[in-house]
Amino acid sequence: MAQFQQIGLKINDEDAHAVYVGGQTSKGHIVMISSEGKPSTQMLKHSDARQFELADENTIEKIKVQDAYRINNIKYEDIEKDVVQQD
């Protein structure tokens, strides 16, 4: 069963709404909202402002939700520090 975790992500240095969908031991994907159109690799950063290092398999595609995009094949360990801790 897929797990949903809110993560911190920046698009053009602005905080973005994003969730990681997937388990901690496998690859999943990130669903994010970008009102600026399809984000490029240069626009994406981790919550601590580190550049996202995307591989060829990490495609970004439009999904059928207004202003929402998905990054495919993301390893949990690559976004673990971006997970927003719930109180």
Score class of each variant (00 low, 15 high):
residue 5 Q to E: 14
residue 50 R to H: 15
residue 35 S to F: 07
residue 33 I to W: 01
residue 68 A to G: 01
residue 11 I to M: 03
residue 51 Q to M: 12
residue 65 V to D: 04
residue 39 P to T: 04
residue 67 D to S: 06
residue 46 H to T: 13
residue 38 K to I: 13
residue 17 H to A: 03
residue 29 H to N: 14
residue 77 E to Y: 08
residue 2 A to L: 14
residue 86 Q to I: 12
residue 33 I to R: 13
residue 41 T to V: 13
residue 79 I to F: 00
residue 69 Y to R: 00
residue 13 D to W: 08
residue 70 R to K: 13
residue 36 E to A: 10
residue 27 K to G: 10
residue 14 E to Q: 14
residue 69 Y to E: 00
residue 14 E to L: 08
residue 37 G to Y: 01
residue 13 D to R: 14
residue 10 K to P: 04
residue 6 Q to H: 08
residue 64 K to P: 09
residue 24 Q to Y: 07
residue 62 K to H: 07
residue 47 S to C: 11
residue 10 K to E: 11
residue 2 A to I: 14
residue 27 K to H: 08
residue 53 E to F: 12
residue 48 D to E: 15
residue 75 K to R: 12
residue 32 M to I: 05
residue 41 T to A: 14
residue 83 V to Q: 05
residue 15 D to P: 11
residue 44 L to A: 10
residue 38 K to W: 01
residue 16 A to P: 07
residue 32 M to R: 06
residue 50 R to P: 10
residue 60 I to K: 03
residue 34 S to V: 07
residue 70 R to N: 07
residue 57 E to I: 15
residue 82 D to Q: 06
residue 79 I to K: 00
residue 83 V to S: 04
residue 59 T to D: 07
residue 20 Y to K: 00
residue 17 H to I: 08
residue 35 S to Q: 14
residue 44 L to P: 14
residue 3 Q to M: 11
residue 25 T to H: 13
residue 78 D to W: 10
residue 70 R to P: 04
residue 11 I to T: 06
residue 61 E to A: 09
residue 84 V to H: 03
residue 12 N to M: 08
residue 23 G to E: 10
residue 26 S to M: 09
residue 56 D to P: 12
residue 13 D to S: 13
residue 33 I to T: 15
residue 78 D to E: 12
residue 3 Q to I: 14
residue 73 N to E: 10
residue 64 K to T: 05
residue 18 A to L: 02
residue 77 E to S: 12
residue 17 H to Y: 01
residue 28 G to E: 08
residue 15 D to V: 08
residue 39 P to V: 02
residue 13 D to T: 08
residue 6 Q to V: 12
residue 17 H to E: 09
residue 75 K to S: 11
residue 4 F to V: 15
residue 47 S to P: 08
residue 57 E to K: 15
residue 48 D to F: 05
residue 58 N to F: 00
residue 78 D to I: 02
residue 64 K to L: 05
residue 71 I to D: 02
residue 76 Y to A: 05
residue 79 I to C: 01
residue 74 I to T: 02
residue 37 G to H: 03
residue 72 N to H: 09
residue 45 K to M: 09
residue 84 V to R: 11
residue 49 A to W: 05
residue 63 I to H: 03
residue 51 Q to R: 15
residue 78 D to K: 09
residue 11 I to H: 02
residue 69 Y to S: 00
residue 51 Q to H: 12
residue 46 H to W: 01
residue 81 K to W: 01
residue 71 I to K: 00
residue 67 D to K: 03
residue 69 Y to C: 00
residue 5 Q to G: 04
residue 36 E to R: 13
residue 53 E to A: 14
residue 83 V to L: 08
residue 75 K to F: 07
residue 87 D to P: 13
residue 26 S to L: 06
residue 36 E to D: 12
residue 12 N to W: 01
